[in-house]
Design a protein around this nucleic acid. Structure first.
Length: 119
RNA sequence: GGUGGAAACCAGGUGGCCGCGCGCGGCCCUACGGCCGUGUCGAGGAAAGUCCGGGCUCCUCAGGGCAGGGUGCUGGGUAACUCCCAGUGGGAGAAAUCCCAAGGAAAGUGCCACAGAGAACAGACCGCCUGCGGCGAAAGCCGCGGGCAAGGGUGAAACGGUGAGGUAAGAGCUCACCAGUGCCGGCGGCGACGCCGGCAGCUAGGCAAACCCCACCCGGAGCAAGACCGAAUAGGAGAGGAGAGACGGCCCGUCUCGUUCCCACUCUCGGGUAGGUCGCUCGAGACGCGCGGAGACGCGCGUUCAAGACAAAUGGUCACCGCAGCGCACGGCCGAUUCGUUCGGCUUCUUCAUGCAGCUGACAGAACCCGGCUUACGGUUUCCUCCGGCA
RNA sequence: CGCGGGGUGGUGCAGUCUGGUAGCACGCCGGGCUCAUAACCCGGAAGUCGCCGGUUCGAAUCCGGUCCCCGCUA
């Protein structure tokens, strides 16, 4: 079996306030129960993603854990995504209680809805 | 076994698979960077709150004062502290032990509600005693005046306590003892202070976490400090300045021609935004040993380099093992029973001792770096206090 | 990183500086007025003063600690 590329290097992280603002302003929005996805495909450089955990989700330890799990889940789908797309994943309350399989499933769902992934 | 208290320590482990950051090595490469390999490498005791104290950096700098703020028993530790250690004096407790912003109220100002007669150079309601007058058989009562502060009552607090003398009744009015205050002396201690002796006066309220006084300390900002590199656009400074003149503006000139400057163009320079790099981790460092000290801590020697992110890395997932608790089963005990069994309850003690792919596992994430404080929180060990039982 | 403001009946606020009585409005409850409702009139209940300590005879108030909420600068 061919090993799939599950890496997520630093340069694929979305950084800088202006990039975020652009995705929030011009990007399309897709929601599931625990994830909100902002997605911008027009006129962007590279494939970049970011994960947002607001203070409402808990203190720093809890937010870090949520963000790390989201990133791990994203890694599983990264290779099948388009080359030019900016993504911002926003965690909603309840993600922390989600099982790993459930989180993977939800990540797949939200990417499917955004049309970034074939079923 | 319980109970209360004090210290010290730990912060589950191992291994796959997939990732992230950093360092090192190699290869590719103009460079940014990419790929591969590799590592005693990669969160905490509080990384937290940001309550103190420093280092570091910049600003202002001739020195000082005032204002403002902080601290407040003594001695020591420290780079420094509001911290720590050792003591002193108070307080809590049966004890182990713990707690205390603990200078000054005979510098000044202010406050002390309600109650109460009186609350700050005390006061006289009831009361006690007494002189005179009146009434009355008397006890006594009434009126006017005087003496007193023992007793009652109020209050958080009422101007020493007990006893004796004294007196009309009383009172530190006098005396003895005690408590407390001030002063002097001696002894011990570096000192706070303690102990002892003497003298004085006769009692002097509390609150300075009220204003304040006294002593000591404090310049301001903060790593988004600060340093360097530096697009695009606009603007600034300087240099060059061809060609055309039918054609920009201005000046000289009637016009033509011509010239200077501006503009345009080219080049250079400096400031500087976005952005990037540095600051950024070797430091009051960590560990070990020895010495000094009662301790905080200090000194010496040796070894060692152990996170550096920036919409913010240090993880995700699976398996096994360990510890503690819980649950269930089994076992044990008790009760009921149709006495094969089945059902229900308990499993708190003693001895022996078993299983489960069972469940649960605390507080919490570095953001320039240290020293503290405070708060959150799971567990282990040791020592001590008191209580109960057994020997 | 550095600061500021706030927490008091159900709600919104006074009172805190200068310590002794917690007050106002709306709402709520009961009664009256009305055929009835509103308005109006009368009466009433309701507050661990965020929490924990300390100072004081006495603390919402003074002091220290702590928790939460809101906001500001870069």
């Amino acid at each position: 079996m061919k090993r799939i590329d599950e890496r997520f290097p630093r340069k694929e992280r979305l950084q800088g306030k202006r990039n975020f603002d652009r995705v929030y302003k011009d990007g399309a929005v897709y929601r599931t129960q625990h994830i909100v996805l902002f997605c911008l495909r027009d006129n962007v450089e590279g494939r970049k993603a970011a994960f947002v955990t607001s203070k409402r989700l808990g203190k720093a330890v809890r937010r870090n854990r949520i963000r790390r799990r989201l990133r791990e889940a994203y890694r599983r789908f990264r290779a099948g995504l388009p080359e030019r797309v900016h993504l911002v994943f926003v965690a909603r309350s309840g993600v922390a209680e989600l099982e790993w399989e459930g989180l993977l499933g939800e990540m797949g769902t939200v990417l499917l809805r955004a049309g970034l992934k074939k079923s």
